[in-house]
């Protein structure tokens, strides 16, 4: 695009869902828009502009982060997992399965971010209490479910994962 030339595009290299990508981006490009618009990974959503809603949550070097709060250039050299990279060989991740089993989603818009946050929670705390789950979801907003079944979904997943740290 001709316009981009005016904005001194910067080369970056990131590994997303196990695939290495090299691209040039405007320095001001947020990671979430790089994922969505450059790589076509539209499962990561944008729900706000103040880093409150968590719909854009991805894993970056194993930590759950809000991809609207990081510039793509800051992600240079990192490994990222998005919602699209969670299911392996057609099998849902237990957290994805839990959300389906326990009706943890309605409109589905906050869901990818919720799931990415929950995956990170269970990786660091395989047997969370209800209070710990609710605390972990502090940065993720849902307007449909009242969080009741999201908490249930994460508990279901924790049990399914055997309370073990089964980082994938």
């Amino acid at each position: 695009m001709t316009a981009e030339a005016e904005y001194a595009a910067v080369p970056i290299s990131v590994t997303v869902n196990g695939v290495k990508h090299e691209a040039t981006v405007e320095p001001r490009t947020l990671l979430v828009y790089f994922l969505r618009e450059h790589l076509g990974l539209t499962g990561t959503h944008v729900g706000c502009d103040t880093s409150q809603c968590g719909a854009c949550t991805v894993q970056l070097n194993g930590r759950a982060v809000k991809s609207c709060t990081i510039l793509a250039v800051q992600a240079n050299g990192t490994e990222i997992t998005t919602i699209e990279g969670l299911a392996r060989e057609g099998a849902l991740h237990p957290v994805q399965e839990g959300f389906r089993e326990k009706h943890g989603l309605q409109c589905g818009y906050c869901t990818p971010g919720m799931i990415m946050t929950a995956v990170h929670l269970l990786e660091t705390n395989p047997n969370p209490t209800e209070e710990e789950i609710r605390h972990a979801l502090e940065g993720n907003l849902c307007r449909c479910t009242g969080y009741v079944n999201i908490v249930e979904s994460i508990r279901w997943a924790a049990e399914k994962m055997g309370g073990e740290n089964v980082s994938r």
Partner: peptide
């Protein structure tokens, strides 16, 4: 749900 929990939903901003 299978579509929505895997990030394969299609919301308006996903359309290019």
């Amino acid at each position: 749900d299978p579509v929505l929990v895997t990030g394969k939903g299609c919301y308006v901003d996903d359309i290019q």
